[in-house]
Design a protein around this nucleic acid. Structure first.
Length: 674
RNA sequence: GCCGCCUUAGCUCAGAGGUGAGAGCAACGGUUUCGUAAACCGUAGGUCCGGGGUUCGAAUCCCCGAGGCGGCUCCA
């Protein structure tokens, strides 16, 4: 605030450059790279060349300012494009914005795509350009001038963008450094010497304007920071994140695996299955306390179900279909007939559908609708909360799958709440409380909330959608929770509240969700008998806390770096004998622990103690119990805690068992504070 | 699905058209019986992802396919 420059009355209504204004007000220094221009609602970043009314309120942004980064990164995108066009003449440019920790620029290059070597050359030339300390300059062009310049340069993508800007009536500005210029709204650093710390990190394909049917461009990514030290720190962070990657840890810790014959469908190995089941047990125990009823439903359904639910018209691209041999024979017959009759078979698709009668469920909701409908339901039964850990299969396009976080076969901690309209608010709010309690048990601090509204492809009336969306907004406001809106990203049957958490590499994943659905009940013609003895339409809430167990586990592995809290760990304790001489006593302890419900294992090999400890540490087992002469004599074990590598000394076996049992339940379910 | 890269022993990785394809770890056998992050010796282990081609000769070059990785697009 103290830095804010006050305008004098003389200056009013003149356009002056930001640089001049700052200089005049004594706010300009060596490291000033841009300024914040105060506007009615907040502020906007402007660079030093931008002409602004001389009465403007300006705040200098120097190199160390967090907002300086986007200016630096954006400017580097320009420098990179300059380098690319010098090294690869004829390459067209598209968009080149700053990103979360760097920048990219999209290119349309003839000939072979960019390779490793090319990146090195480009980066080297960028450094040369930076060393020349070229000033960035801003110019305002008329639409005609801009068109001329871009068409002369053959920049077809930029021209397309220009027309869009002109149509919106925006001011057309170009920025240049040296001989290179680009249609761009800025802001940019005063000169290239501010662009000190950057690295080009990779090439990837990206559609022009992000639209799948558009041509694919080549995107070169870079990272950039204000100085080399911060850049190095960031690189170190990336390296650390790599160590936490759940795919790597999943293999090392023998949690899960994949096989090419079941692409994107994980195999949970014994250790992974233990954690997986611990997660499900945990949610089950919550269900018992929160009034959910678990059901088990079929895997494969007649397509009629999915026609009724609306999955077939809107979701079939994501479904696996299943045919019996009989069904396939039917298709063959029909195809042969069609060929013999030289029929172009417009109904070919329909014939296929006759044969491929079944589909694997991609969601549990239709099955739950069937259960709801199996009896005449009374309002006294509501809210009816049906939970299901059923296995779901979704056909995901080959390029999108990823470790455990995006798979084709998974299970959700899924439940559907059938309730009356006036129960909706309360159910949503209760669910949000439940969800945050769960996230706390796992040590997840912040989660980001997104409300996803009606998508283009959807079922149901707009009136239903209005009510459903309103219900979600109201509940969140009631809870005082901040949220973002993702326009058009809802499920086809209803809007969603999504709860997102980040993985180690900073990718954000949707885990929990609650969705309001007025449509399913209509499609399945669900009803319950109200207190007035007339039928009423229930509302269905779709909800999951962990989301998919697979994805949650993936994020959890990264969050904990594989060191699961004891209540989730595949093994609670490993017993390590100092030599094989003490194996008998160790086995005695092992049996006792196992009998008490402790997940204990023992390393009875002839390795030296140091080697056994190393292995146990690498497997991140929460407790290690060393057994040697002293322990065998005194009927104790020497306990060491994984976290902090803290030695707890020789303890009686019973004490160790009690200690472990006190941690065996999730934090929120422990009776004694611990 | 699209663009690019990758696939060699159970794992991590060497091997860049020319001996019978290698190392470390793991496994197995033996020796050692050890006190808080790797004892020693030995043995075995390979359709070099699959298929086709070029070549006197292919792990290595080309084509097709599968799977994975980084993105784009799409999603729990």
């Amino acid at each position: 605030m103290s830095l804010e420059a006050q305008p004098s009355s003389k200056e009013r209504d003149q356009l002056r450059s930001v640089r001049d204004l700052l200089a005049e007000r004594g706010l300009l220094n060596e490291s000033t790279i841009a300024a914040r221009l105060k506007e009615e609602n907040g502020h906007r970043l402007v660079d030093l060349h931008t002409p602004v009314p001389s009465t403007s309120l300006l705040e200098p942004v120097d190199l160390s300012d967090p907002e300086a980064l986007q200016v630096i990164r954006h400017s580097l995108a320009h420098v990179m494009a300059d380098a690319v066009q010098r090294l690869f003449p004829g390459t067209k440019i598209a968009f080149g914005p700053p990103t979360r920790d760097g920048f990219y620029y999209d290119y349309d290059k003839a000939g072979p795509p960019f390779g490793e070597e090319d990146l090195k050359r480009i980066e080297a030339l960028m450094r040369e350009i930076v060393a020349q300390d070229l000033p960035f300059q801003r110019e305002v062009l008329s639409p005609e001038e801009a068109r001329n310049r871009l068409s002369k340069a053959g920049e077809t993508y930029k021209l397309e963008h220009l027309e869009r800007l002109i149509a919106r009536g925006e001011e057309i500005t170009f920025y240049h450094h040296g001989n290179w210029s680009d249609l761009c709204e800025g802001p940019h650093v005063p000169s290239t010497r501010f662009l000190k710390a950057f690295r080009l990190t990779g090439v990837a394909g990206a559609y022009w304007r992000g639209i799948e049917t558009n041509p694919m461009l080549q995107r070169i990514y870079g990272i950039a920071f204000a100085d080399e030290a911060t850049l190095e720190k960031h690189l170190a962070r990336l390296e650390e994140a790599k160590q936490r990657d759940h795919r790597k840890l999943g293999k090392e810790l023998e949690l899960f695996a994949f096989h090419p014959w079941a692409p994107a469908a994980p195999f949970f190995l014994p250790r992974g299955a233990l954690v997986y089941n611990a997660l499900i047990d945990y949610v089950r125990s919550l269900y018992r306390r929160f009034g959910y009823l678990e059901v088990i439903t079929p895997q494969v359904f007649d397509r009629e179900l999915f026609l009724t639910s609306g999955h077939l018209p809107t979701y079939s691209a994501n479904m696996f279909f299943a045919a019996s041999e009989e069904g396939l024979a039917l298709i063959r017959e029909d195809l042969e007939k069609a060929i013999l009759q030289e029929d172009k078979a417009p109904e070919l698709a329909a014939l296929m559908k006759e044969g491929v009668r079944f589909a694997l469920k991609p969601m549990n909701c239709p099955a739950h609708a069937l259960i709801f409908k199996m009896e005449r339901r009374s309002h006294r039964e509501l809210p009816l909360r049906l939970a299901d850990f059923g296995r779901l299969h979704r056909f995901e396009r080959s390029g999108v799958t990823q470790g455990l976080t995006r798979v084709r076969s998974f299970c959700q901690d899924d439940a559907h709440i059938f309730c009356s309209i006036d129960q909706v608010q309360g159910e949503i709010e209760a669910f949000i409380d439940l969800l945050f309690g769960v996230y706390k048990d796992f040590g997840f601090e912040g989660s980001q909330i997104v409300v996803a509204t009606r998508p283009e492809v959807r079922i149901g009336s707009d009136e239903n959608w209005n009510r459903a969306e309103e219900a979600l907004f109201t509940a969140l406001r009631q809870k005082g929770l901040p949220f973002e809106i993702a326009e058009g990203e809802g499920a086809f049957y209803g809007p969603k509240v999504e709860f997102h958490l980040e993985d180690a590499i900073g990718r954000s994943w949707q885990l929990g969700t609650i969705q309001v659905d007025f449509n399913m009940a209509e499609r399945f013609d669900l009803s319950f008998v109200g207190p007035d003895n007339t039928p009423h339409r229930p509302v269905v809430l779709h909800r999951a806390i962990l989301g998919s167990i697979e994805r949650f586990l993936g994020v959890l592995i990264e969050h904990t770096a594989g060191a699961f809290p004891l209540w989730l760990a595949p093994e609670h304790i490993i017993l390590l004998t100092v030599s094989e001489r003490y194996n008998a006593y160790a086995q005695e302890v092992l049996r006792e622990m196992q009998a008490k419900g402790v997940r204990a294992i023992a390393d009875l090999s002839s390795e030296k103690l140091g080697a056994k400890i190393r292995k146990a540490r690498l497997m991140r087992i929460p407790y290690r119990g060393v057994i040697g002469e002293r322990e065998a004599q005194s009927q104790t074990i020497s306990l060491t805690q994984r976290d902090g590598n803290q030695e707890l000394g020789a303890l009686p076996v019973q004490a160790v068992i009690e200690r472990i049992l006190s941690e065996i339940t999730p934090p929120s379910m422990r009776s004694s504070p611990n």
